[in-house]
Structure formats: structure tokens, C-alpha cells
Write a protein that binds this DNA or RNA. Structure first.
Lengths: 247, 247
DNA sequence: AGGCGCTGTCAATGGCATTGACAGGCACGT
DNA sequence: ACGTGCCTGTCAATGCCATTGACAGCGCCT
């Protein structure tokens, strides 16, 4: 019995062995779920096929039966995250179509950011891709509608939407990329900055010297910086709305 | 003669062989130069040790004698690009300290963006790192000074600088990441969008339907979108300056 | 009962960063 | 002149990664 050809002996004994390592049945959904888990900071914060295989209790390459390549997987995941972001915004916003354009835009942007930051690893991977998810279409229509009702011409409202969303995604991904870094690199950066701001000769850089404390606070406090950018951007939108009303 | 121990036979024949593959002498500068070349779209747009080795005519691992790891190399490269950006801004701006804060900010942001976009591969790699390059200190002081003279309190001016720069870097890196993608992925994305915007039922999404042409134009025309964001942001800064003056 | 396709497994490939052992050469001191 | 030792390039090997092709079980349809 032991004399069987070693490589092929997967018929008898295998049945017993496979009692443990049962051939798991994967579905598109179970894979996406596991992948999402891996992308969160608690899940290790890295999405690779081997980790995914382990998480699923299956061979890493089994995933290829459901997604042509990693890119397709990432695209599908991004779609989920976008839906989640929209959902989050919906919950935060009042039901009826509000006329407070500023709140609407701010909540939308922050929701998108929040849902992406829950999976930094995915945010980094998804960086460049756009999904054109049907889920968001309705939200976009609403967003443009709010701006239009506020006084902006339709096309300008659309431009505003595009600008807001791209800015938000870009800054979010920027934050995500940093949060993925290992402690060492993060601390290295921080140390470099501290030194830089600490050693500014007051006579040569008077203003920088005075703002050093604040800038140090702001160092990689990306959420605050994002809030700053968003606020300023929205002030700019207000100006545009004013201009449009007068014209 | 042929009976020599194969692995060790590098003494005689090697002298002849090495006439071709002369032991190249690397310097920090020659490496940085070559790496920068590789990062540009013409240079292949990908920075790896093996490509770098080939570019230098040396063994890939020779680079480790000059940079501890890839991260350190990227940091050094980023420094160069930042300097280049500052230089570019200096050339574009009038010499004396101008009082046109808006032009100053716009030119600075665009210069940073331009110099980074000349090496998309590097922009992507550098994503998360900050260099605290001494080269930029003077520029920052000037930037804050311009805003301060315009009427902003020092700390708020510093916040503004931080916001503007982070926004610019984030959006630039976002663009760079897309430009790195292979044609297939880019076209795939574009097709998805075209379909999406082409098939919008007018009765359900009236506004989106009307703005579809503009949104299609804007699709991944990242430079225009950046211009939009920057403009709106600067409008917002103007508001803040007004507010500060009145107070 | 037979066949076919769906899906998991396994082994292999090629690219990547990184490491440790080795070796040539140059500068220094004697 | 002659060693000694560091600086720096080379080579082979490691380990992680995505991806592929050959194989095999299982269920469904006929």
C-alpha cells in the first residue's frame, strides 16, 4: 500500500486528510467579504492572494476562478466601499431633499472619506481606478440638484461635483498611503519635521518660526488638514454661487 | 585548464571578460540621475533595482552601497524633484516679493504639480513620504509672508499653506497613479464611463443627463479638474482674507 | 451511464527587494 | 615596497508576490 506512486496517492488517504482540509466552496460574496476584512487595519492591512487564501481556508489560486485578476477583485471591492459611503451619507443626511448645499456636500465628502479610510489598503490599491458604479448615480444627481437649486448653472454644478469628489478621493488615498507605512518610516518622517521646525532661525524665518507649533500639530494630522481644505473649498463654492445669482 | 573549479575561475579569463563589463564606478549623483531618468515616462516609467542596474551598466545590488534601501533612494529623489519645483516657481514668479497672493499660490501649486508629473513613477512611490527638505523652507516662509501681508493672521496663513500643498500633492499623485496604468486599464475605465453617461434615462436623472457631455470631457482630464479645485480653493482663501480684514 | 463544465489544488514561472559571502582596488601607515 | 583594511562592485540565494497551466473531484444534464 505504501508502495503507491507517491505523487498520485491522493485517492484513499486523501479522503481522510481532506476531512480536515475540506474543499471549501467559495462564492463571489464570501471572497469579497474576506478581502474586505483583510484590507482593514485589524485584518492586517494588506491584500495578497496568499493571505486571502488563508483567510478563506482555500488555495490562494482558487480566487482566480471568480475574479480574472487582482485588478478585477479590487474594482469589485471599490464598488462595495463606494456603496457603503453612499449609505453612510444617506444615514447622516436628512431624508427629504434639503436645501443646505453646504451640509450636503460636506457630509458626502466626509462619508466617502470615512468609508475609504476604514480600508486603507484598498484605498491605496484602488488609487487610480474609477468604477462608474451604478450605485452612485442617484447620489450624484442629488448632489448636482442641490447645487443647482442653490443657484449654480447645471454644468457648473457638475464641475463642482467632479472637483469635490476628485479632491476628496485624492486626499483620502494620500492619507491611506501614509497610514499603511510601518511605524519606523512614520516616526522617521515625524522626527525629520520636528527637527526642521525646531531649528528654524527666528531672524531668517520669522513667520515660519511663529507658526511652527501649529504646523507641528498639523503634521500628518491628515483629518484636520482635510477639514481645512474642504472648508476652504466650500467657501469657494459659496463665492461661485453668489456670482451665479448676481449674473 | 577547463578543469578549474568552475565557481572560482574568475582570475585569468575574467581579466579579459571584464574588459567589456568594466567595473563601473557609481556615485550618489550618477545613481540619482539614472533613477530620475527611469521615472520619467520616456525612461520606462518604472523604478526597479534591476532596471536601474541596467541603466547604470552595473549590478543592481551595487546601488545598496549608496542607499540603504529603496525607500532612502526615493526620499533622495523626491528631494530633487521638490527643489526642481521650487526652482520652476521661482522662474515663473516675478523676482521681488509680489503682493499678488493669488498668483503666488497658484504658480507655486502648479509648479509643484508640474515637476512631480514629469516623473509619475516617482510621484507614486513618494506618495506617503514627506521629506522636510531644507530647500523648501525659504519658499514656505515667502508663501506665508504673502498671505500674511494680504491680511491673514500668521497661524491661519500657515494652515493655508499646509492645506494648499497637501491638496496639490494628493491630487498630483492621484493623476500620476492613473498615468502609470497600462492602456488597457485606462481604456476600460473610459469605456465604463462612456457607457454610464450615455445610458442615463433623462426622466430619472435630468440634471446628470444635461451635464453628461461636460462630465465626459472632464473624465480623467485631471489637469482641468485640478485647475477647477485650485481655483475654487483660492476663492475660498479670498473669503478668509476678507473675513480676517474685517475682524 | 456517460460526459462536460465548474471550481479547487498543485507545481512552476518570473518579477521584485533585500541579504550575506566574496573579491578587486585604492589609500594609508610602516 | 609591503601589507592592512575599507570602500564598493559582483554573485548567488531568499522570500514574497501575481499569475498560469495541468490535473482532479463533483454535480448536473442528457
Amino acid at each position: 500500500m505504501e508502495a503507491r506512486v507517491a505523487g498520485q496517492s491522493t485517492s484513499r488517504q486523501a479522503t481522510a486528510e481532506q476531512a480536515n482540509r475540506r474543499r471549501v466552496t467559495l462564492t463571489r460574496e464570501s471572497i469579497l467579504e474576506a478581502a474586505l476584512r483583510l484590507c482593514s487595519p485589524e485584518g492586517g492591512g494588506q491584500l495578497t492572494f496568499s493571505r486571502l487564501g488563508k483567510e478563506l481556508g482555500a488555495d490562494p489560486t482558487a480566487v482566480y476562478r471568480h475574479f480574472r485578476d487582482k485588478d478585477e477583485l479590487v474594482l469589485a471591492l471599490t464598488d462595495l466601499v463606494i456603496q457603503e459611503g453612499i449609505e453612510l451619507a444617506r444615514q447622516t443626511l436628512p431624508d427629504g431633499p434639503s436645501d443646505d448645499w453646504r451640509a450636503f456636500l460636506a457630509v458626502t465628502a466626509r462619508s466617502v472619506r470615512t468609508s475609504h479610510l476604514a480600508r486603507p489598503a484598498l484605498a491605496v490599491l484602488a488609487a487610480a481606478r474609477t468604477t462608474a458604479s451604478p450605485a452612485e448615480t442617484h447620489s450624484v444627481e442629488q448632489l448636482i440638484s442641490v447645487l443647482h437649486r442653490a443657484g449654480l448653472p447645471v454644468v457648473e454644478a457638475a464641475e463642482c461635483y467632479r472637483a469635490l469628489l476628485d479632491m476628496t478621493l485624492a486626499m483620502t488615498q494620500y492619507t491611506a498611503a501614509f497610514s499603511i507605512l510601518d511605524r519606523q518610516a512614520q516616526e522617521q518622517d515625524e522626527a525629520a519635521w520636528a527637527v526642521k521646525y525646531g531649528m528654524l532661525p527666528e531672524d531668517e524665518f520669522p513667520l515660519l518660526h511663529r507658526s511652527a507649533p501649529r504646523l507641528t500639530e498639523l503634521f500628518r494630522d491628515d483629518d484636520t488638514v482635510f477639514a481645512l481644505v474642504l472648508d476652504t473649498f466650500l467657501d469657494g463654492v459659496a463665492v461661485r454661487i453668489e456670482r451665479a445669482r448676481k449674473a
